[in-house]
């Protein structure tokens, strides 16, 4: 690694100004992706801005607005936060399958999103849940997660901006969520496909998909809920929304087949759960 500067601001605006004035600067929160990229020199930052010194990034809270996850909250902290398993089981599923125990002790949920991998485990379910981000620019502003991903490992942040936290809206009464990850092995692995679902009888059916397009994908299917052939139409809509590639983990064809299988399974499991 080349020489670099390490700065740990305690104030969000200070962090924004440092980042804005240093085009070669990178934000570190968990660092579990950044450190790997620095090691293999796919990025060579001149300056590392550690946002863990900013108190607001450590907020983890559940209230009438929903779940707020600060940018420094680790995957294990979020997973072990009581309301997550109870109110956001799909997010719990996604965190449980994310990397390994030690990595989850460092990796942050917000970092998983900012890294903007098409295979990010938390992205499909957070898209399906309608999450939105608090972005720190000259002031804090909010952006739907759906508008955040712009390409493989690309997000829509402008120079200097960073994500301070995200809000996952409170689920409607009776709302169910689930996430299935298909990897190559039973243990820690990147996903071949990831399929998340959020369903409520009051008229909500959302499917989030990972590893099947250049970005994580959201498919809204609220309008299909009163259809007799709902599942078939849902699968058709999902397959029309993806364009997977062949890579070291799986072929395009296998990804399409697995997306079909898991979309069907997600719909079936959510409706079974909701009817109990």
């Amino acid at each position: 690694m080349a020489a670099l500067e390490y700065i740990k601001p305690t104030d969000s605006i200070e962090a924004y100004n440092i980042l804005k004035n240093n085009p070669g600067a990178k934000v570190i929160a968990g660092g579990t992706d950044l450190m790997v990229m620095m090691r293999n020199e796919s990025i060579k930052p001149e300056c590392i801005v550690d946002i863990k010194g900013i108190e607001a990034t450590h907020i983890l809270r559940f209230d009438e607005n929903g779940l707020y996850i600060g940018a420094s909250c680790t995957a294990n902290e979020v997973m072990n936060f009581g309301p997550v398993k109870e109110y956001y089981p799909g997010l719990y599923d996604a965190l449980k399958g994310l990397a390994t125990y030690q990595v989850r002790n460092r990796a942050t949920v917000v970092g998983n999103l900012c890294n903007a991998s098409p295979a990010a485990d938390t992205a499909p379910v957070l898209l399906a849940m309608g999450a939105y981000l608090d972005i720190q620019g000259p002031a804090v502003w909010q952006k739907p997660l759906l508008e955040f991903f712009t390409g493989v490992k690309k997000n829509s942040l402008s120079q200097g901006e960073f994500v301070q936290g995200l809000t996952v809206p409170r689920p409607e009464p009776g709302e169910k969520s689930i996430y299935y990850k298909k990897g190559r092995i039973k243990g820690a692995d990147l996903s071949i496909v990831g399929v998340a679902g959020v369903f409520s009888r009051k008229g909500k059916l959302r499917i989030g998909l990972g590893s099947v397009y250049t970005t994580p994908v959201l498919v809204v299917a609220d309008d299909l809920l009163d259809k007799d052939d709902l599942k078939d139409r849902l699968v058709e809509r999902v397959l029309n929304s993806i364009n997977p590639i062949t890579d070291t983990r799986a072929s395009r064809e296998y990804r399409i087949d697995m997306t079909r299988y898991y979309t069907f399974k997600v719909a079936e499991d959510l409706m079974r759960e909701a009817s109990i």
């Binding site: 450190m35 090691r39 294990n76």
Partner: peptide
């Protein structure tokens, strides 16, 4: 007290 990969942590952190 939490298990972490020390290769993924900057000493400064």
């Amino acid at each position: 007290g939490k298990a972490v990969n020390s290769c993924l942590v900057l000493a400064c952190e």
